[in-house]
């Protein structure tokens, strides 16, 4: 503590992930928190882009409208390519997930913002929702035939039970990796930037700061650029994995 007071270096890499009530007091299940605030800002941004932006219904689109159409076409094509034509019925759900994740990720990159997708609770809920609905859908569409997903008929007969065990395990690990990948990526990037940010004011306290401070500022800029990429790629990956799971449910025969 004495050293900390001396150098002024304070590391709180977990600080930006804290959830606190907006108006003070305990956090109950209904309390509006900073997570609520940023989720609602996400809703606002989505409505700005998709409702205000497309209100012209122009044949020749304005800039905002063409962005909205681009996003629509991007996810629509992804669902169609990966899950097939019959997967398009579930396009609105997938598009909802994609938009929420992509807006949460990008809005979270604003300084002082909160990133809902960096929380296991949020990504875990989405991943579990995908997992459960895909499993239910698989059984509803294919009945017991859905279990054929675990029985690799192209492998030698002796290996199949072993492969079935592995497939079942990997099936149940899906929601875990699905959620932790997104939350971990978001958390990691923000924590690393936070650590670099903690190094930045070193110039105020010590001589080595002359060398360290510019480097850490540069590192933050570089990390920020990387995070812009990661924010999109992780939303893309979450969505495309959802499509892959959906395809497994609709066509379990590999």
């Amino acid at each position: 503590m004495a050293e900390e007071a001396g150098t002024g270096l304070v590391f709180h890499p977990m600080e930006p992930f804290k959830i606190h009530s907006l108006f003070g007091g305990e956090v109950h299940w209904y309390t509006p928190t900073n997570a609520t605030l940023w989720m609602f800002i996400g809703i606002l941004a989505i409505s700005l882009l998709f409702i205000v932006g497309t209100r012209g219904r122009a044949i020749v689109p304005s800039r905002v409208q063409s962005v909205a159409e681009l996003a629509y076409g991007f996810v629509h094509k992804m669902v169609e390519d990966v899950a097939g034509k019959d997967g398009l019925k579930y396009f609105p759900y997938i598009f909802t997930l994609f938009l929420f994740i992509v807006f949460a990720n990008f809005l979270g990159l604003i300084p002082m913002a909160f990133t809902p997708t960096s929380h296991i609770a949020v990504t875990g809920l989405m991943a579990m929702a995908v997992f459960i609905s895909v499993t239910v859908l698989g059984f509803m569409k294919n009945g017991a035939g859905f279990l054929g997903l675990f029985w690799v008929s192209s492998a030698p007969l002796a290996l199949r039970p072993l492969l079935a065990v592995i497939e079942v395990i990997s099936y149940f690990v899906r929601p875990v990796s699905h959620s932790i990948r997104l939350a971990g990526n978001m958390m990691a990037g923000h924590a690393v930037m936070e650590v670099f940010a903690a190094f930045a004011p070193l110039i105020l306290f010590s001589a080595i700061g002359i060398a360290v401070t510019p480097l850490s500022v540069l590192a933050i800029v570089a990390m920020y650029a990387l995070e812009m990429l990661v924010a999109f790629v992780q939303a893309y990956v979450f969505t495309i994995l959802t499509c892959v799971y959906l395809k497994d449910a609709l066509h379990p025969g590999h």
């Binding site: 959830i19 956090v27 109950h28 299940w29 209904y30 309390t31 509006p32 928190t33 997570a35 609520t36 989720m39 609602f40 996400g42 809703i43 989505i46 409505s47 998709f50 409702i51 497309t54 909205a68 609105p92 759900y93 598009f95 909802t96 997930l97 938009l99 929420f100 809902p116 929380h119 609770a121 949020v122 809920l125 989405m126």
Partner: peptide, 24 residues
């Protein structure tokens, strides 16, 4: 904080889904 986040996430997703399917 989990119940809080889950509640608000559900609200958010439902609102986004509603906006998308009804209007956008």
């Amino acid at each position: 904080t989990f119940p809080n986040q889950i509640f608000w996430l559900t609200v958010t997703l439902v609102v986004i889904y509603w906006l998308l399917t009804r209007i956008a």
